[in-house]
Design a binder for these strands. Structure first.
Lengths: 241, 241
DNA sequence: CATACTCTGTTGTCTATACATTTTGTTTGC
DNA sequence: GCAAACAAAATGTATAGACAACAGAGTATG
C-alpha cells in the first residue's frame, strides 16, 4: 500500500509515487512499471484514475506505453527546454561571475534596422546601451541593447551595473516575456570593439541578435551581442520525437 | 451533427473536427469552443470521449481550458519544434537547390577531437568527406563529415552527390536518429577553405559542429560545417512556457 | 520442424453516472 | 443600492464495468 503523500487528488498521489520511484531508480530507464491493475490495487483506486496519472507522465515523456505489453520508463534523459535569459543569467548558469562596463548610454533615434526590429514609428526614440560584458572579470562580449523609451520611462534611473536588464524589465516594469527570437552570425568587428573584446586592432566575432517579445507580442528589446570567438559558443540540442 | 471523417475512433473524429475548425478559423484564436456537453450531443458520444479529444489538443497546446469557463483556442502560434536534418534538407526547406562538390573522400585514422566525438577506440577508422556545399550553384559552406567505418561498411559505394548523407544513413543502413548536438562558433578559415568558400585568401566563417546520435545513443556522425558568413545564419526561437 | 491456433495478460477505447470545484449571473434580504 | 446567498453552467475528479486490440507464450496440427 502506497503511503499518503498529502496530495489533494488520487491521481496526483499516483503520479508522485511513480515520479519519486523513477527518480530513486527503483524503476530504472527501460524497466517495466507495475501494470494498471496492480497500481489500482496498490492505491485502491479505479483504473481510469491510474490511467490519468500514467498519461500525464507519458505527456511529460517520463514514461512510454506499449499496448499489450506495459508501461516503461523512458531511456532517454529528459532535456529541459531552453529558457529566456540575458547575458547575466547565462554567465551565472555557466558558473562564472558576470560583470559590465558601460561604454555609452544614450537616448537616440534608432537606425532603420533597430526601428524595424522594435516595430517603431519614425519619430519614436530608444535607449541605447553599449556595454562591455565580463565573465570572471575578463572580456566576454560587447553588447548593444535597444529599448523603446515609450515602454521603459526613466530606465536611466536603474543601476545597470548591479542588476540584469531582463530582471529590471520583469520585476521593476512588471512585463512578462513570451518569446525570444535569436539569430546567430559570424561578423567582422569594428576597430573599437575588436580593441575592447580582443585587445587587437581587428578581428571577427560570433554575433547573436536577439528580439525579446512580451506576452502581447510587443517587441521589448533588440540587442546585438558580439561574443569573444574563442571563449564562447552557442549550443543547440535537438531530440527527435 | 458532425460528418463521418473515416477516423477509426470516436475521439479521433472529435479531434479532427476541432483541428479542422480551428484551421478554418471557424474557431479563431482566443475564441470559446463548444462546451463538452454540446460536443457530446453533436457527436453522440459520452463526455469522457470528448474529454480525451480535448485533452489531446491541450497537450499539443492547440487549446487551453479554464475550469468553470470553457475551452479556448490558443492565441499564440504553435511553433514546430526543430527537426534533425542535414545540409541537403536544410537548403531545400529554405527554398533553394542544394548541391555538392566532393573535395576529398578518405578512409583515415581520425584526429583526437573526432575520435573523442565519435567515442572510438585508438585503432578504429573513419570515413572523411570534405565537400563544398552549394545552394543554387553558389558556394554556401565547406563541410567535413566523419563516420565510423565499422558502422557504415562500403559507404563509398553510395552516390553522395545525388543523395543526402542523412538519407543514406536512414534508408540504406536503416539506422534511426535520436539526438543531434550542435555547437556554433565563429572561426578563422584556412587558406584553402577561404579560397573555396569566399574566393579570397583568408576570412572567417560560422562553424557548426554536429554530432548525430542513434536511438541507442551511439555517435553516428561528426561534422563541421563552415558556412559563408554573409549568406547564412542560425536562427533560434525560444518560447516561454 | 514449422505453422496456425488459442489463451492469458496488458493497454486502448468507450459508456453512464456521480459529485467537486470554479465561474458567472441572478435573486434575495437588508 | 449593495452585499450575501443561491442557482446555473462549465470543467475537474473519480467509479465500475464492458469490449477491443495487441503481444507473447504455450499448444495443437500438419
Amino acid at each position: 500500500m502506497a503511503t499518503y503523500t498529502g496530495e489533494k487528488h488520487a491521481y496526483l498521489e499516483v503520479e508522485k509515487f511513480l515520479r519519486d520511484s523513477i527518480d530513486n531508480r527503483m524503476y530504472s530507464p527501460g524497466s517495466l512499471l507495475p501494470t494498471e491493475k496492480s497500481l489500482c490495487e496498490m492505491f485502491g483506486v479505479s483504473r481510469m484514475t491510474i490511467r490519468q496519472a500514467l498519461n500525464n507522465l507519458v505527456n511529460e515523456k517520463i514514461i512510454f506505453r506499449i499496448r499489450g505489453k506495459g508501461s516503461f520508463v523512458s531511456n532517454v534523459m529528459i532535456e529541459k527546454p531552453p529558457v529566456i535569459q540575458g547575458f547575466t543569467d547565462e554567465i551565472t548558469s555557466m558558473g562564472m561571475r558576470p560583470g559590465s562596463e558601460m561604454i555609452s548610454f544614450d537616448r537616440i533615434v534608432p537606425s532603420e534596422g533597430v526601428r524595424a526590429a522594435l516595430q517603431l514609428n519614425a519619430d519614436e526614440m530608444v535607449y541605447c546601451f553599449h556595454r562591455l560584458r565580463l565573465a570572471d572579470d575578463a572580456p566576454m562580449a560587447v553588447e548593444y541593447s535597444y529599448l523603446p523609451t515609450k515602454l521603459f520611462p526613466n530606465l536611466d534611473r536603474f543601476n545597470l551595473m548591479e542588476n540584469s536588464l531582463y530582471g529590471i524589465i520583469k520585476h521593476q516594469y512588471h512585463v512578462q516575456f513570451s518569446f525570444l527570437a535569436q539569430q546567430v552570425r559570424a561578423v567582422k568587428l569594428t576597430r573599437a570593439d575588436a580593441q575592447r573584446l580582443l585587445g587587437t586592432g581587428s578581428g571577427f566575432s560570433l554575433q547573436v541578435s536577439r528580439t525579446l517579445y512580451s506576452i502581447s507580442n510587443l517587441p521589448l528589446e533588440y540587442s546585438q551581442t558580439l561574443y569573444h570567438p574563442s571563449k564562447y559558443s552557442v549550443n543547440i540540442n535537438i531530440a527527435q520525437d
